[in-house]
Simulated assay, not measured.
Amino acid sequence: MRYRSESPFQNARLLTVTLALAALAGAMPGHADEKQAKDLLKAMSDYMAAQEAISFEYDTSLEVVTKKHQKLALASSGTVTLNRPDKIRVTRQGGFANVEMVFDGKTLSVLGKDANLFAQTEVPGTIDHLIDALRDKFHRPLPAGDILMSKPYDELMPHVVDVKDLGSGVIRGEECDHLAFRTDDGVDWQIWIAQGQSPYPCRYVVTSTKVAGFPQYTIDIRSWKAGSDAAAGNFSFKAPDGAKERKLSDLPDTDELPEIFSVK
Rank of each mutant, 00 (worst) to 15 (best):
T79W: 07
A53T: 13
L82G: 03
T126D: 06
A37G: 06
A115S: 10
L72E: 15
L62Y: 09
D86E: 08
P85A: 02
D86Y: 10
K67H: 08
M44I: 00
T107A: 06
Q93A: 12
L134R: 07
E52Q: 12
T121I: 15
I131V: 15
Q36Y: 01
D86Q: 10
D114F: 00
N116H: 11
T79S: 15
A73G: 13
T79N: 15
D114V: 10
V65P: 04
K113A: 10
Y58T: 04
K35N: 04
N98G: 00
D59M: 08
V65K: 03
K42A: 07
E57D: 15
K113S: 06
K113G: 05
F138P: 01
S61L: 14
A73R: 13
I88A: 13
L62V: 11
H129E: 12
F56A: 14
E57P: 00
G125L: 07
L117E: 12
L82N: 06
L111Q: 07
D46Y: 00
H139I: 06
A37V: 06
S55H: 09
L117F: 11
F56L: 15
D46S: 03
V65T: 12
L82F: 13
R84Q: 11
A49H: 00
E52D: 11
D136G: 05
S61D: 15
T107Y: 07
D136Y: 15
T66Q: 10
L117M: 09
L111Y: 10
R84F: 03
A133K: 12
A75G: 04
D33L: 03
E122M: 12
G78I: 03
F118C: 07
V65D: 03
E52W: 05
I131T: 08
E34C: 02
Y58H: 03
K42T: 01
V65N: 05
N83E: 15
D33M: 05
I131M: 14
L41Y: 09
H129G: 13
F138G: 09
I127P: 02
F118G: 12
V65R: 05
S109P: 13
A37Y: 00
K113V: 09
V110C: 08
H69N: 13
G78W: 03
K137N: 12
K38Y: 00
D33V: 03
V102L: 11
K137P: 02
A43Q: 06
D46T: 03
K71E: 07
V102E: 12
N98S: 09
G78N: 07
S109V: 09
